[in-house]
Amino acid sequence: MDKKEKIRHFLQEILTRKGDSESFADDDSLLLGGRIDSLNILEIVGFLEKEFGYDLSEQEFDPNNFDSVETIAQLIRS
């Protein structure tokens, strides 16, 4: 599984747990669309730290970077 696939899989898991079974595209807005919240973002941060060793404390944090599969993938690429 590539990075993007792993991210998508994790987001799917979060949504399923929240009872949201609707599908989503890579560029679908999940945060601004109200499908994930701040606590979910922390789960994603935890996932990125654990899975990819990504350290977010060194940069300015912007929750909008966690809006979609695409923006998260971009974040860890940068």
Partner: peptide
């Protein structure tokens, strides 16, 4: 209001303290 608290207090604290204790 919750978002205001999250943006200005929750995230900055989260990234600063107790990184080893989830």
């Amino acid at each position: 209001f919750k978002e205001l608290l999250v943006d200005f207090f929750f995230y900055p604290t989260y990234f600063r303290f107790f990184k080893q204790h989830p």
